[in-house]
Design a protein around this nucleic acid. Structure first.
Length: 290
DNA sequence: GCTATTTGACCGTC
DNA sequence: GACGGTCAAATAGC
């Protein structure tokens, strides 16, 4: 956080304060239209805040590949990166292609010291055509062969992303909050060291937000996590403060996901496949607003 | 012939 | 020097 310029820090505080105000203004009994409007404002504030952080904290620049344009400084700077785990079941393992909506081209594979399985290296197909330098690494987990650890590096410049959090308003089924054991187990696969969120709770409220799983194909099990160097710079629980009554639920969305591959235009047709109103997808982060 | 994947070699960092 | 990441020639699939 020290690297954030003074004016950026000011802007960040302003945005977060504004976001907090919007959260405070939230009224569960208000009309869905009003709620949507307020949500848009909240998301906008969060997006702006994250943009500031992404630009100034991670690299000190927008460029995910500072070396390529600055031949003088040969020291490789840390690139913006985040990881997720993807769990696959049954026959999915063979056909699993790590499809996250972007087209990737494999450019290498390497046996990693201490790892049983090799690590595969992918780069965006549009590297040459659109100058998109996003890359990802995929490695099968040592502990669980059904789990793939995917690490993304760099931002996609081949597609524009929108809001990182997709929320829908739900106030008609206040007592439907029954978390299935299976989903809880999946959510508990979240690495504690990387995700600043607590496991989901289940409480009835007059109004709740239900998170859509952002990435269509991995609704089964996925998590995103900030790498330690990013996490230490920005912790959600130190930033958000709000009243006790506020209860907002969204998927495990780390701070840098604003530009992540998962934050694409949301296709409402996916809702049916995902059962996006499934209360089991909830993660209660109310304590971060307290 | 074009595109994607494989794989050994090379390079930069620690 | 070891290791991880990338390059690029060879190969495969369509």
């Amino acid at each position: 956080m020290e690297k954030v310029k003074a004016w950026d820090k000011e802007s960040l505080i302003t945005e977060l304060t504004q976001g907090k105000e919007f959260v405070n203004q939230f009224d569960p009994l208000a009309s869905p239209k009003e709620c949507d409007l307020l949500l848009e404002k909240i998301l906008s504030s969060l997006d702006k805040s994250l943009s500031i952080l992404n630009c100034e904290v991670l690299n000190g620049t927008n460029d995910p590949f500072p070396l390529r344009d600055q031949g003088q400084n040969k020291k490789r700077k840390k690139m913006q990166q985040w990881s997720k785990q993807v769990k696959v079941y049954g026959t999915e393992l063979e056909s699993f292609n790590h499809d996250d909506g972007y087209s990737w081209r494999k450019y290498g594979q390497k046996n990693i010291l201490g790892a049983i399985n090799p690590r595969a290296y992918y780069r965006c197909t549009h590297r040459n055509t659109k100058g998109c330098f996003a890359t990802k690494q995929v490695q099968k987990s040592k502990e669980d062969p059904l789990v793939f650890e995917v690490t993304y590096k760099g931002m996609h410049s081949c597609k524009t992303s929108q809001s990182s959090i997709f929320l829908s308003y739900e106030n008609q089924k206040p007592n439907q909050c029954q978390i299935k054991k299976q989903r809880v187990e999946k959510l508990n696969t979240i690495k504690e060291e990387n995700v600043p969120f607590t496991p989901p709770k289940c409480e009835s409220q007059n109004a709740q937000f239900f998170a859509n799983s952002i990435e269509p194909f991995t609704s089964e099990s996925m998590y995103l996590s900030l790498l330690p160097n990013q996490e230490e710079e920005f912790e959600m629980d130190k930033i958000f403060q709000s009243s006790e009554s506020d209860r907002i639920v969204f998927s495990s969305t780390p701070t840098s996901i604003i530009e992540s591959p998962f934050c694409r235009d949301w296709d409402s047709s996916v809702d049916d496949q995902l059962d996006v109103h499934d209360p089991n997808l909830m993660i209660d982060i109310s304590e971060y607003f307290n």
